[in-house]
Amino acid sequence: MSHTQDKSSALLQGIVIFVYLAVLTALEYFIAVTFNGVSILAIVAVVKAALVIYFYMHIYKLNEDGGADEHSYEYKTVTNRLGLWLFLLSDSFVFAGLLVMRFNLLGLTRPNLSQILGLAVTAVLLISSFFMNRAETAMKHGDRKGFVQNIIITLVLGIGFIAGVLGVEWPRAIAEGVVPSLNTYGAAFFMMTGMHALHVLTGVILLLVVLNNARKGLYDNKDYPIEAAAVYWHFVDLVWIFFYPALYLIGKLPG
C-alpha cells in the first residue's frame, strides 16, 4: 500500500475504507441498542481505529528515512512527521486518561443522552474524515481545485460537528439532567466532549491555514503541512471513535 499509487486507486481506497467504517459504525449502534456486548463494542472500536490509523493517517510512512541529504525537504519531512506522531502519542494520553476517568466514575452505566443524536454527530465527523482524505489525495496528485473543494466540505462538516455538540447536544443534555455541576455523568460528559471539541477547533484552525496557503499557491511539491493537518484531523476522528461508544453506547442508563 504505497503512497505512490495512482490517483484513481487512491480515491477508490478512500471510498472502500469509508464504507467499512460506516458499516462498522452502524454495527456498533445495532449491538449497543440490542444486547450491549461491551467487549464486542471495544473490539469494533479498535478495528475502526486501526483502519483510520493505517489507511487515513498512513502510519507506515514513519518507516521512510528521507534519503541521505539532511538538508533536503524529504529528510526534514520525515523528521517533522516523527515529531507530529510523538505529539499525537502524547496527546492520546490525555484522552486515555479521560476514558479512565469515565470508566472509573461511571462504570458500566452511561449518561442519559440521545443515542440517535450521538450517531448523527459521529457520522458528520466520519464523513469529514473521508473528505479530508480526498483533499489530501487530490493535492498529492497536483489537483489544487479538487483539494480546495474537498477541504471546504471538510471544514463545513467540522464546524457542523462543533455546532452540533455545543449548540444542540449540550443544551439537550442539560435539559435531560446531565448537568456538569450536578453529578459525575454531567461532569464526565462535558469534560470529555469539551476537550474533544477543543481539539476539533484546533483542527479547523489548521485546515483554514492550509486552505489559505494553498489558495496563495503554496505547497506545489512541499505539501507536508497538508499531510500534517490531515493526520491531525484524522486523529481527532480517532479519539471520537473511542469517545462515542464510551459516552453513548456502552452500559445501561442509571437507576
Binding site: V100, L105, P180, S181, L182, N183, T184, A187, A188, M191
Partner: peptide, 16 residues
Amino acid sequence: FGMGFFDPGKGGNPVL
C-alpha cells in the same frame, strides 16, 4: 464549575 470528579457527594472518587 462544581464538576464533581473527586466529590463523593456527587458520585466522584478522590482516589481516582
